[in-house]
């Protein structure tokens, strides 16, 4: 055993042996197949419209969506809508993080505070927050305020609840180790509770992200004067299917980009995890 211990290079050798030289196709097979499948689908869609198998008024088509998209960029309206939705998202999500994380930590740490707040958190977490929209519009009007409020409400609970669970499920053995070294409550919190909660917190943020996007779109469709959701509602009411499709793509893309960004942050913070995420 001592022999293997003194040769740390053996570990590096192992990993190199485990990844023998493979062809470009073999290493990227999933991506290649995925790309081909998407391209084929787009071609089929365009072709089906060109052959009048389906009515473009309902289904639109890839080329029509591109045309509509570039027209909207030229008009400049899409930037206005994107800015509105982006600000709503940023404010709501930021506020939810600033309030949800500390409150989740406090509720996880102090049993009494948890007893006071838990009934409300549970009730609101179980309610679809969208159901509160009429109330929110009465309170905050149809401008920025109501959308920030709905994004906040959609996001704050997943963040809060996950953070709380993270604090509460700290491994008892870790607490014993810290106590044995004479750690104070504050040190126990900083060196054990907080770091072991980070993965839960990031999961909460990722769940919150999805809820936030739903909140924005529905909120803007319900009552607004600009924003991606508002643009889609107007385009839909006037049968501009191409523009509705542009809206869908914008929202899907922003969701995917932001999820990917959070995943990268997770990787950065959780490189110690034994996870097999590839």
């Amino acid at each position: 055993m001592t022999a293997t211990l003194n040769t740390p290079s053996s570990i590096a050798d192992d990993t190199e042996d485990a990844a023998p030289r493979r062809s470009f196709y073999a290493t990227h097979e999933t991506t290649i197949i995925g790309t081909i499948s998407v391209v084929a689908f787009l071609f089929f869609w365009e072709y089906a419209v060109a052959q009048k198998w389906v009515n473009a008024l309902f289904t639109s088509s890839p080329l029509r969506i591109i045309t509509a998209g570039s027209a909207m960029v030229k008009e400049g309206t899409i930037w206005q809508d994107l800015a509105t939705s982006g600000i709503e998202f940023g404010l709501g999500f930021g506020l939810a993080t600033i309030i949800g994380v500390p409150l989740g930590i406090l509720m996880g740490w102090y049993r009494r505070l948890n007893a006071v707040l838990e009934p409300f958190v549970n009730a609101l977490y179980a309610t679809p927050r969208i159901a509160l929209l009429p109330l929110i519009v009465i309170w905050f009007g149809i401008d920025l305020g109501s959308k920030v409020a709905i994004v906040f409400l959609s996001t704050v609970f997943p963040i809060l609840v996950n953070t709380m669970v993270g604090i509460r499920t700290v491994d008892r053995d870790f607490i014993k180790v810290a106590r044995s070294f004479g750690a104070s409550d504050r040190q126990l919190f900083m060196t054990v509770a907080l770091p072991s909660t980070v993965p839960f917190l990031l999961t909460g943020l990722r769940l919150g992200l999805g809820h936030a996007l739903i909140g924005i779109v529905v909120g803007e469709m319900y009552g607004a004067t600009s924003g991606i959701g508002y643009m889609m509602a107007v385009a839909g009411a006037t049968f501009q299917t191409d523009r509705v499709m542009v809206g869908i793509i914008v929202i899907a893309a922003s969701g995917m980009i932001m999820t990917q960004m959070l995943k990268m942050i997770e990787m950065r913070f959780e490189k110690w995890r034994v996870d097999s995420r590839g």
Partner: peptide, 19 residues
């Protein structure tokens, strides 16, 4: 109470995985 003159080695190694 606990003190720096004593230290415990637990059965489960309980190493902090993030350190």
């Amino acid at each position: 109470t606990t003190g720096p003159d004593r230290a415990m080695v637990f059965q489960h190694d309980s190493l902090f995985p993030w350190r």
